[in-house]
Computed example of a mutant assay.
Amino acid sequence: MAKTCWLEREKRKQKTVNKYAKLRAELKANNDYVGITLLPRDASPTRLQNRCRVSGRRRAYIRRFQMSRLTFREMANAGLIPGVTKSSW
């Protein structure tokens, strides 16, 4: 399970993204990319997607399943992910 402090940090990042979402949309519509770079780093929604929800691991992240490769392998072998089977040849 992911550490509580990591989950809380992700919640804080989500609040920051929501806070600046309207401003980011306006700047993007005006093609003001310099203005976007002046916003806080955590204002970008892409910063939220790179952490496994189960283990909290950042590296080896599989976007399609939104989990790390280690968690994916464990869950796939246990049959917890629909449509995923272990290959054998």
Rank of each mutant, 00 (worst) to 15 (best):
R12T: 00
F65M: 05
E26C: 05
L23M: 12
D42V: 06
P40C: 05
R64H: 07
A2F: 02
A76Y: 10
R51H: 08
Q49P: 02
Y61S: 05
K3C: 02
R51S: 06
L23N: 07
R47V: 09
L38H: 12
G83K: 01
R24D: 08
R63S: 13
Q14H: 10
I36W: 01
K86S: 05
N18F: 06
T85R: 00
K15H: 06
V17N: 08
K11F: 03
C5K: 14
S68Y: 02
N31V: 00
A60T: 09
R9I: 03
M1S: 06
V84I: 14
T4G: 02
R69D: 04
T85Y: 01
R12Y: 00
C5T: 12
F65I: 05
R69C: 01
R69L: 02
R64N: 06
F72W: 11
A29H: 01
A78C: 10
S68F: 01
K22F: 06
L39Y: 11
P82V: 00
W6G: 00
L48Q: 13
E10R: 11
G79W: 08
V54H: 06
S88R: 04
R9M: 06
K13Y: 12
W6Q: 04
Y20N: 06
A78V: 05
R24I: 03
R57D: 02
G35K: 12
A25V: 05
R53N: 12
R73H: 14
L38M: 10
A43M: 09
K22D: 13
R63Y: 14
R53L: 06
L39R: 10
E26P: 01
R9Q: 13
T71D: 15
A76F: 10
T16R: 09
V54E: 11
L48R: 12
T4S: 13
T46G: 08
A43C: 07
L80K: 06
L39N: 10
T16G: 03
Y33S: 13
C52E: 07
A25D: 14
S88P: 00
N30S: 15
R58K: 14
N50I: 03
G56R: 03
Q66I: 03
W6A: 01
Q66C: 10
N31E: 05
T71R: 14
K19C: 05
N50G: 08
M1F: 04
S55Y: 09
R41E: 07
Q49V: 06
